[in-house]
Design a protein around this nucleic acid. Structure first.
Lengths: 228, 228
DNA sequence: TCGCGATAGATTGTCGACAATCAATTAAAA
DNA sequence: TTTTAATTGATTGTCGACAATCTATCGCGA
């Protein structure tokens, strides 16, 4: 993603590449939550057979971006209020766990990388590109998971990140979600680079609570709009 | 699994059924960690085409039971000491989280179910069927995740459980792992049905520490045997 | 004898077509 | 009018064959 990673250029299968394309399409809003994916159409669109496409679909299912019922079809995962709450509650637990692992592992490289990702986020906020903001925000939070040196945790965060990004992106597309507050991430980064663990833990709890509440507000607004 | 679940009898695809068979084969030791799976052979063995079989393989990859490198092949996941440590550390975090969610939700049904699963485990210990013991132990610990009413957590526990079961089963097959200690689970159940949250939290930490240490001992023993 | 490149066999990735299943529509009956 | 059954169209599940790729073996040269 961000690291050059010399050995990165291994032979990639069609399915993996198509999965990337589909993921981008979902995050970009070309595929709105609830819409159905038809294999034949997508296969022709991507210029491949249904085999690789099916594999790509399977991969996105595991990432929680798609849901499938046998013999019926595949759809983009729908938003639900309890799902949001589950994501944020679990993310709170995991992010505290990640910070505990990474806490004594923070070095100059960690601090530099965190500041750089924060700068990238702030730059995106200035341009007003909301989608880029979401990506940068995810990227910023990813750092601690990468620094925790815990493969399994990183893998699970990947799944969570995908779901979260889907929700944030679709919420923005649906009702122009207001982007991440500048000050909110300032305090987060400050705590992450500081020396007080209790402050960091409190910051995570606060950060997650704000995110959860904000998202739930939009979901309720959408619900009322649908009911009306 | 344990609940009758009226609507459970939905049309099942070949891939899903084959995935179940493969999972059983792995847990039973018919497919030892590190061994390669050849698609054509397995497809013929199961009497299906390579399509559904590929889908089954993909599913087990997501569960962490298989690893695949493109154009090279698929193998049963190998054990590694750090992987074990990661599983136990993450499981500790998640199980504490699950208990916190389920703590005030425990009712008569919960207590009855837990006692029943404990009885089933004890019965399995008496028969000496180690594989059954492992399944029963997993089933016992699954209860709190089911009671937490958290879909995402339950899903992630499913993945963790699979990996854990793979490790326990292969360890037993490799060097006759000594089964779960009777007293260990007695104290676990007692704490889970008790009224003291600090006691429960300490019990989880202790339980995980014991399991982790025991497994690592066997891994080190195997390593020394291999080196010799 | 050791290292290196070509070759052969096996295995995976991909494709197009066919069969099974589902959802919506139409028509018939109560 | 409402409910139910049959039908049709579309979509997914499955299959067998072909092409791309890898791994191991063999032969050649140093």
């Amino acid at each position: 993603m961000s690291v050059p990673a010399v050995g990165k250029l291994q032979k990639q299968t069609f399915g993996a590449r198509i999965a990337d394309e589909l993921r981008k399409a979902i995050f970009a809003g070309d595929l709105v939550p609830g819409s159905a994916l038809i294999e034949t159409a997508l296969a022709e669109q991507f210029g491949v057979s249904r085999g690789p496409l099916r594999e790509a679909i399977r991969q996105l299912i595991d990432e929680g971006l798609l849901v499938q019922v046998p013999f019926s079809g595949t759809r983009v995962t729908e938003l639900s209020e309890i799902a949001i709450r589950e994501i944020y509650s679990l993310r709170t637990t995991l992010e505290i766990f990640a910070f505990r692992l990474a806490w004594d592992r923070r070095d100059a490289g960690f601090r530099a990388e965190m500041l750089q990702r924060q700068q990238a986020l702030l730059a995106a906020i200035d341009t007003g590109d909301e989608m880029e903001c979401i990506r940068r925000e995810m990227h910023l939070h990813s750092l601690v998971y990468e620094a925790a040196d815990h493969q399994l945790l990183l893998e699970i965060w990947g799944g969570l990140k995908g779901r979260l990004q889907l929700y944030l992106a679709s919420n923005y597309l649906a009702h122009g979600r207001h982007g991440p507050r500048r000050t909110g991430h300032d305090s987060f980064v400050a705590a992450a680079l500081g020396d007080s663990w209790p402050v960091m833990e409190a910051e995570i709890l606060q950060h997650m609570r704000l995110g959860s509440e904000e998202t739930e507000r939009f979901l309720k607004a959408r619900k009322e709009k649908v009911d009306a």
